[in-house]
Nucleic acid binder design. Structure first.
Lengths: 138, 138
DNA sequence: ACTCATTAAATGCGTGGGCATCTGCTAGCC
DNA sequence: GGCTAGCAGATGCCCACGCATTTAATGAGT
């Protein structure tokens, strides 16, 4: 038996489910708020912002990041990310550039406008997080 | 100033972002695993299972639940839930029934098959939760 | 050097979700 | 009673996502 005698065999399960429901609720509320507010005020979706942020973080060093390394960090499939980058590119916020050493791959980098847009949206993003993650009875 | 002197003014922000990223990662991983495994083994999506579970929980008392009270608990819009119920109904897992006192509304209730399907899927659901929520450095 | 398995990214296709709207019903007001 | 405001749920529309496939380039084996 995996559990000590004084804990009923099914005891951890409610905890697990409760934890999952809490996670779901937080995620739904926060993601929804982010999507709506970022969308209204900065014309960015939640995922768009997340991608801009990762690009901004990696901006200091080289001039861009490979699509493939980006995908897992934003929890998006390769195809979804490809299209998302397409949208950002069409909006002038990022640039795709070939990399000479492996001509299959591409580098993605923020443009001036992309960097500006990210900086503009960041305060609202943080504000929403602060509002939504104010842990009520965590 | 909202923060004591020995904490830099921007100190809480990284915490907030880190918390949010952790939430995102957990949610993505768990939701993805649930969707895939429940789908493969029981032909149920994550949301479908969640709805069945709420219906099962409310099953003891009256014969069904109103669509409207169901929607917020599964973090779905009214329209999404309406379609989801439609899918479950087509699969024979739930039944829609008019309620006499307010003929605008409907009650949704599990069928025999729905109850069975839920019971069958439940262990896998818990197993996936246990596997994915095993808090790594929470 | 040529072939073939593999990899990076793009694209076709189907699906579930949200918003706006529509339909049918209820309830308050005259 | 008839009229209008408001509500429950269904539906049209569009969009973002994932899966499967395609296209192009690499690199290992011969």
């Amino acid at each position: 038996m995996a559990y000590p005698d004084f804990i009923a065999p099914d005891s951890p399960e409610p905890t697990l489910v409760a934890e999952w429901r809490d996670l779901l609720a937080r995620h739904a509320a926060t993601a929804c708020a982010l999507d709506r507010e970022l969308g209204e005020q900065h014309d960015l979706g939640m995922s768009e912002f997340e991608v801009l942020e990762r690009l901004a973080e990696g901006h200091v060093a080289g001039e861009g990041q490979r699509l493939q390394e980006l995908a897992p960090t934003v929890h998006l499939s390769q195809s979804a990310l490809s299209r998302l980058i397409g949208r950002l590119e069409k909006a002038g916020l990022v640039e795709r550039s070939m990399c000479a050493d492996d001509r299959r791959g591409i580098y993605v980098a923020l443009t001036e406008a992309g960097c500006r847009r990210y900086q503009e949206a960041k305060p609202l993003h943080r504000e929403v997080l602060a509002r939504m993650l104010a842990t009520p009875a965590k």
